[in-house]
Design a protein around this nucleic acid. Structure first.
Length: 373
RNA sequence: GCGGGUGUCGCCAAGUGGUUAAGGCCCCGGAUUGUGGUUCCGGUAUUCAUGGGUUCGAUCCCCAUCACCCGCC
């Protein structure tokens, strides 16, 4: 038994002028055309959207967070409902986070030991402990197609010693994750750490590559660092990961980030930006981000983006959506979420097609020109 | 008609005889990257109903006018 019984990654076409590639990733719940953007559904729902609406954005795979499901829903309850797929009645590929990042970013009073992480639920003060073994058990109960290693994400900025310690722990924890997890129908992705130090990133990438995984992730970016630093780390790390396996850049990103990531050889992305921005009134366009509440849209009867063919753009105007937003109608967030998610997924789809067509460099350069005005 | 009260940004609303008049809402900008669900951060009154007066100085004291509110005829 091995992951290859359930997972397969086929590279359809590689760019000759960059590390970009177009692929087809097969999972137990379906195939994913890469590169792909994956919407985030923290609490087993993409905020503001029904499953039908999620699928209408073109989503091929979504995320859920172990940390939130563990604290709020109860992972045994989800397991008894048939795992996330049955619980949500969503029968496409799903990926779960390990809970590691949330413990570091959300939990209070956390204490990190070699064994695992002790932390308090910030909502009710209850005490919890998650270790690599427990994270694997949680994620096995949730039953996602892809599960993530339990890692320690160093903050930005951080000194070398701190990054070194976090990486050492992440390496040991990765071994424990693989010793624990034996369900080959759930692909365990290792995560590269090493903060913003080239040698640590290289060491980490080489370390994770020794594991026979179905895919590999780059973590520890998008934690507040400047874009140039994130690009640099992605650029030097991605090529060090196995060529014939999908590479997942965690927590990224903006439309420009996706273009750059794909150029560096990334195949999968996830980010809260499209849905969080939607709730806060910002939407993507091919000319850069715009804010729906701005007065300039008061009498603008055109779609959010002229080139977009999402549900919101096919049916509604900026003036209408602005009105919904200003009057605090939840439908505003729904329409903007649909648009933003569709926008990023469509962006990855168009870039994929350009890779297959052999004109990725030219096409992505044109897009960048528009985004950066 | 008589007595009492109130008049500070579009709306609520602090405030003091003395440098640049709180705050909230609205409005106008901006932020947001492995999600604590309408969040966070900025900006907007040379002006305190109007006209006089007292004072070195008044939104705050005095007078008049106007508007509104509450009683009584």
């Amino acid at each position: 038994m091995s992951y290859s019984d359930y997972f397969n990654f086929e590279i359809i076409k590689s760019s000759s002028q960059s590390n970009a590639r177009a692929g087809l990733f097969t999972t137990p719940h379906g195939q994913i055309e890469t590169p792909i953007f994956m919407p985030v559904g923290t609490n087993s729902a993409v905020k503001m959207l029904t499953n039908d609406q999620i699928l209408a954005t073109g989503a091929q795979i979504i995320l859920a967070n172990s940390y939130h499901m563990y604290l709020r829903a109860g992972t045994k309850r989800v397991k008894s409902a048939g795992g996330l797929h049955g619980w949500m009645n969503f029968h496409k590929p799903i990926l779960t986070d390990s809970g590691g990042f949330q413990v570091f970013s959300l939990a209070k009073l956390r204490k990190i030991t070699q064994d695992g992480v002790y932390f308090q639920d910030p909502k009710n003060g209850s005490k919890h402990f998650i270790s690599p073994e427990i994270s694997m058990e949680i994620q096995e109960d949730l039953g996602a197609d892809i599960i993530m290693a339990f890692d320690e994400c160093a903050p930005y900025p951080c000194d070398y010693k701190q990054a070194r310690n976090a990486l050492d722990k992440t390496k040991k924890w990765l071994e424990r994750c693989f010793e624990t997890h034996k369900n080959y129908n759930q692909a365990l992705f290792p995560i590269v750490q090493g903060a913003f130090f080239d040698d640590l990133r290289k060491e980490s990438a080489e370390f994770v590559s020794r594991f026979d995984a179905a895919g590999y992730a780059i973590g520890g970016v998008s934690v507040g660092e400047p874009t140039e630093i994130k690009n640099h780390i992605t650029e030097i790390t991605a090529p060090l990961l196995p060529f014939n396996k999908p590479r997942y850049l965690m927590g990224v990103g903006t439309p420009v980030d996706l273009i750059n990531g794909i150029k560096y050889g990334i195949d999968m992305f996830d980010c809260v930006l499209p849905t969080r921005n939607a709730r806060h009134g910002t939407f993507f366009t091919y000319q850069g981000n715009k804010i729906i509440k701005n007065k300039q849209f008061e009498d603008d009867f055109t779609p959010l983006d002229e080139k977009c063919n999402c549900y919101a753009c096919r049916n509604h105007t900026k003036a209408y959506i602005r009105h919904l937003y200003k009057t605090q109608e939840a439908t505003a967030a729904t329409l903007l979420s649909i648009h933003n998610i569709h926008f990023l997924i469509n962006l990855t789809k168009d870039l994929r097609n350009s890779i297959i067509a052999g004109n990725f460099e030219q096409y992505s350069a044109e897009l960048l020109k528009g985004f950066e005005g």
